[in-house]
């Protein structure tokens, strides 16, 4: 898939599938993501302006006219593209492709040109328009594994990098590879219908690998040639798993 050497040296290539037939748009993943990653709550006024910072958002599409209405949900987060358009345009290397196929954002390097956000066809990058404001009881539930972001920098879904790191560390300490299902991002862990599956696609035994090759896999905006690591499952019977 990639022309870079380190792919061969590395066993992991993280990927995620989201089963759209299973998603009922409950929004639990959004809340979980918000809590896990210390995402700022911007408040009513800013949200109205379109500045809510849901790394993972549920896009709601309504098909047909009343009374023949169908609502479809599309959980949308950073697609962790293999050929990510956001990466090459950053003048300060604040975002790049890590050896495990994730598109990472280095907060400390970011100067906030916001070019990456302009070049993201999925519009899943978020900008800190103001300093994050955690006051009162909110500050007690912050995740100590995740840094808070300053105003003026970009952020986005990290696939719960902190959990991946912890899982890999545990596996290393125990002298084994990371097992399938051992690492769960907050959204996948929370999803009540098990619509979200996360795993190592290089491991051919993994559930993700199986789902991706189930014939139901689609990628968003595939014509953009971005090769996302987040894949959606749609159509066919939902009897897998």
């Amino acid at each position: 898939m990639k022309s870079f050497n380190y792919k061969k040296q590395n066993d992991y290539k993280w990927a995620m599938t989201i089963d759209l037939d299973r998603c009922n748009g409950c929004g639990a993943c959004v809340v979980a993501c918000q809590a896990e990653n210390n995402i700022a709550t911007v408040g009513e006024k800013q949200a109205e302006l379109g500045r809510k910072m849901h790394w993972l958002r549920i896009e709601r599409y309504i098909e047909g006219t009343y009374p023949d209405v169908k609502v479809r949900f599309l959980p949308m987060m950073c697609q962790h593209c293999d050929y990510a358009p956001c990466e090459s345009v950053c003048p300060v290397w604040a975002t790049y492709q890590n050896p495990e196929g994730l598109n990472v954002q280095v907060y400390n390097r970011c100067i906030g040109t916001r070019f990456c956000g302009n070049n993201c066809p999925y519009s899943v990058r978020y900008f800190n328009w103001y300093d994050s404001n955690f006051e009162g009881p909110e500050s007690n539930q912050l995740n100590p594994d995740v840094s808070l972001r300053e105003k003026g920098i970009m952020e986005k879904c990290t696939m719960c990098m902190q959990r991946i790191r912890r899982g890999k560390d545990t596996a290393k300490d125990e002298g084994r590879d990371v097992e399938d299902g051992e690492i769960q991002p907050a959204c996948a862990q929370t999803c009540p219908t098990n619509a979200i599956t996360f795993g190592n696609i290089n491991d051919h035994e993994s559930k993700v690998h199986e789902l991706v090759h189930s014939g139901r896999m689609i990628r968003l905006f595939e014509d953009k040639g971005t090769h996302p690591s987040v894949m959606y499952l749609k159509g066919g019977v939902a009897d897998v798993i």
């Binding site: 500045r51 916001r114 956000g117 302009n118 328009w129 105003k151």
Partner: peptide
């Protein structure tokens, strides 16, 4: 001092 929220920009209009 306050942040770029002072402008009218918001996602996905970054420029």
């Amino acid at each position: 001092f306050v942040g770029l929220g002072q402008t009218g920009m918001h996602e996905p209009l970054f420029w």
